[in-house]
């Protein structure tokens, strides 16, 4: 079993949730980039769950910012979320870098799913409205 897993949760319709758990830095950033790539490749919205992350550094922020840019280019929704129990160090790096409104970072999975579906370009035909 991996100590610091990054998994894709595809149980939500039209959205892939990337679960980031444990400690993440320059060593695991390439894995995160791969998973984000995979999630973006599904064509729907992408939500990143940081509620289980215990540490992250600027390499991880770089991976998230790159994924956000690629999502924007593709017209795909991209939202990061934490919750009230998020590791203080994770919240702090998001706060002091001013990235909360940029990524953006919202509170809780429901808000993240709602936000990503809102920013998502409507699919060509499938959606009723």
């Amino acid at each position: 079993m991996e100590t610091n897993p990054i998994a894709l949760d595809e149980s939500e319709e039209g959205v892939v949730v990337v679960l980031v758990e444990g400690e993440h830095d320059i060593y695991t950033a390439p894995t995160l980039r791969e998973r984000l790539e995979e999630a973006l490749g599904r064509g729907g919205g992408v939500v990143v769950d940081l509620t289980g992350a215990t540490f992250m550094d600027s390499s991880i922020l770089g991976a998230l910012l790159d994924a956000r840019r690629r999502a924007q280019e593709a017209g795909t929704g991209f939202v990061v979320y934490v919750d009230a129990d998020v590791e203080p160090g994770v919240q702090r790096i998001l706060d002091i870098t001013g990235l909360v409104p940029v990524l953006p970072v919202v509170n809780g999975r429901d808000d993240a799913l709602a936000a990503v579906r809102e920013t998502q370009d409507p699919p060509a035909a499938a959606s009723p409205g």
């Binding site: 320059i26 060593y27 540490f55 590791e87 203080p88 160090g89 702090r92 790096i93």
Partner: peptide, 30 residues
Amino acid sequence: AEGVGVVRQALAGMADALAIDPGILADMKM
């Protein structure tokens, strides 16, 4: 790259021995 986590472990061990505030330890680690 794999060494950076080892440095954080050493730092956490030292902080534990010194009873350093968790918020300050988080800043140190970062």
